[in-house]
Amino acid sequence: MQSFLVSTGVVALAEIGDKTQLLSLILAARYRKPVPIILGILLATLVNHAGAGGLGAWLSTALSPNILNWTVVASFALMAGWILIPDKLDEGEIVMPKRQMGVFATTVFAFFLAEMGDKTQVVTIALAARFHDFLPVVAGTTLGMMLANVPVIYLGSRFADRLPTKAVHIVASLIFVVLGVLALMNAINGNPLLG
């Protein structure tokens, strides 16, 4: 349960102001069909985070516990700093399919590509390696993604403009610092990273 709750909270906070949240806003403004956009984001996130969670779970078995501990420490330290860098996304930067597709397929395509190498994908890898708990981590990161994006799809820029994005990013960064310190204590003591 801890891995699910941590994954949900961390990704929901990390997603505020992220480029994929900005993409959600652009898709909602362009198509004005919230249900296929939400379902497209859900599918793209599930596939993307399942791959990331699988990589994290594999790393937790492929790397020695000592190397894994230090890798997780470095990942959380990287995320603590990266989350403080604001994302920007212009409509011209959105990768859209060349042929006409429906709103759902367009959303899946654009959102999946935007999520590749994104903060939340990296977080999913680190959390899956940290907790050795694939399903709760993927379910949590996916729920966190949906918690951050669904309100933006329905409420649009009125909601997004009122979020204290900088404060949310600072809180998320502090959470990554705490997770990094806990991982560092495990690394120093040579303890395995079990949740």
Rank of each mutant, 00 (worst) to 15 (best):
Ala62Ile: 05
Val95Asn: 13
Lys166Asn: 15
Asp133Ala: 14
Val103Ser: 08
Pro151Gly: 01
Thr124Glu: 01
Leu163Asn: 04
Trp82Ser: 05
Pro136Ser: 05
Ala129Gly: 10
Asp133Leu: 02
Ala128Trp: 09
Phe131Gln: 10
Leu163His: 05
Ala128Tyr: 09
Val150Tyr: 05
Thr106Glu: 14
Asn48His: 07
His49Trp: 05
Lys88Phe: 13
Val108Ser: 05
Leu39Asp: 04
Ser64Glu: 12
Met146Leu: 12
Asn69Cys: 08
Gln100His: 15
Leu68Tyr: 03
Gly53Thr: 01
Met116Ile: 15
Tyr154Trp: 13
Val72Phe: 03
Val152Tyr: 05
Ala129Glu: 06
Ala110Glu: 01
Lys98Asn: 09
Gln100Ile: 14
Gly56Val: 05
Leu59Cys: 03
Met145Gln: 14
Gly140Lys: 02
Ala172Glu: 12
Thr106Val: 12
Asp118Lys: 05
Leu43Met: 09
Phe104Cys: 08
Ala160Lys: 10
Gly144Arg: 00
Phe131Gly: 07
Val171Phe: 04
Gly144Asp: 10
Thr71Asn: 12
Ala74Trp: 02
Leu163Cys: 12
Leu55Cys: 11
Ile153Ala: 03
Met145Trp: 00
Asp87Phe: 03
Leu84Gln: 07
Phe76Ala: 04
Ile170Phe: 14
Met145Lys: 10
Leu174Glu: 04
Ala52Glu: 01
Phe76Met: 10
Met101His: 12
Ile41Phe: 08
Leu68Gln: 08
Val152Ile: 13
Leu39Lys: 10
Trp70Asp: 06
His132Pro: 09
Ala172Pro: 07
Ala80Arg: 07
Val122Ile: 15
Arg162Leu: 09
Asp87Asn: 08
Leu63Asp: 11
Met116Asn: 06
Val108Glu: 06
Leu59His: 09
Ala77Arg: 08
Val103Gln: 07
Arg158Trp: 15
Ala62Gln: 09
Met116Glu: 04
Ala172Ser: 11
Leu78Gly: 06
